[in-house]
């Protein structure tokens, strides 16, 4: 069980890569995903990616000593200025490939 098994109440995800020795705004490369524009199978894949990130070490205190980490903010409202309603942090060293790919490419390779 994961708290990300159901994303029905979520309007938008934002994935950033944070941390590192410098907080240059250009290095975070935020990736926004509007759930309303994803098909049910795509939403299921997103659930799996978030659950995998959670299982791999998400929500740990991360970033100490300039280590990088992925930060996933979940919003119930789609407007950009909304505050996140939930958040998951995954150290870069523990991040599942699918999460990295989702942030980097905006897609997930389906193993099937």
């Amino acid at each position: 069980m994961s708290r990300f098994d159901d994303l029905n109440h979520i309007a938008r995800l934002r994935i950033t890569r944070e941390g590192g020795i410098v907080a240059a705004p250009g290095l975070a490369r935020p990736r926004d995903i509007e759930l309303s524009r994803c098909s049910p199978p795509e939403q299921q894949q997103l659930c799996k990616v978030l659950a995998a990130g959670e299982a791999a070490g998400g929500d740990q205190a991360c970033g100490a000593g300039d280590q990088r980490y992925f930060r996933i903010c979940l919003f119930t409202l789609s407007r950009q200025e909304a505050q996140p309603d939930d958040e998951l942090r995954v150290p870069e060293s523990l991040a599942p490939d699918a999460l990295v790919q989702l942030w980097r490419d905006g897609r997930i390779d389906d193993p099937s």
Binding site: R31, I33, E34, S36, P41, E42, Q45, R107, D109
Partner: peptide, 9 residues
């Protein structure tokens, strides 16, 4: 197969 997310900004 790769799934693409049409809503991705």
């Amino acid at each position: 197969m790769a799934t693409r997310y049409p809503g991705v900004i």
